[in-house]
């Protein structure tokens, strides 16, 4: 009986590896901050919704900052920032260009996509609620400071 317990203990110990679990989470996206076009100070938008490929990515929220996820399968991403409210909602299209590169994290986590050299382009239409869009930090390496500033 004891020999069997010892054998099973050895088998179990060798089967479990500490590096089998991925405990880290990838970055959620680029940090977008909204600013007042005149004063330049952070200013919340009442309310903003983001659409990607026709689908609602971020529902309408009253906020001055957003986390914008970037797609891993293409080098250009087009988003529609819609300012909701009365009298009608105002959609503005923004196109982002970036360079994708994968980084190996660990045996358990594998590879994660990193986005660098970010560029933003505002598509002008008849009625832009976004005045200007600038990239403050082109390489997305953390999610603390703003990468993109939208002036409205």
């Amino acid at each position: 009986m004891r020999k069997w317990l010892l054998l099973s203990a050895i088998i179990l110990a060798t089967a479990c590896e500490r590096d089998d679990l991925c405990l880290e989470k990838p970055l959620e996206g680029a940090v977008v901050r909204f600013h007042n076009a005149i004063s330049g100070r952070p200013a919340a938008v009442d309310s903003v919704a983001v659409y990607y490929e026709g689908e609602n990515l971020i529902p309408a929220t009253l906020t001055d900052s957003l986390l914008l996820p970037l797609p891993p399968d293409r080098d250009t991403a087009q988003y529609v920032f819609e300012k909701t409210g009365t009298p009608a909602s105002n959609p503005d299209t923004v196109r982002f260009f970036y360079v994708r590169k994968d980084t190996f994290i660990s045996k358990a986590c594998g590879f994660w996509m990193t986005y660098r050299q970010l560029q933003a382009q505002l598509m002008t239409d008849s009625d832009n609620w976004i005045q200007q869009i600038t990239v403050t930090r082109p390489d997305i390496t953390d999610d603390t400071l703003a990468h993109i500033r939208i002036y409205h």
Binding site: P26, E28, G29, Y52, E53, E55, N56, L57, P69, L70, P71, P72, D73, D102, G110, F111, W112, M113
Partner: peptide
């Protein structure tokens, strides 16, 4: 092969 998870449900996962 490298498989990248979809960051959100609205974006597709990508397999290189």
């Amino acid at each position: 092969r490298i498989a990248y998870d979809a960051p959100t449900p609205e974006m597709p996962a990508y397999v290189w």
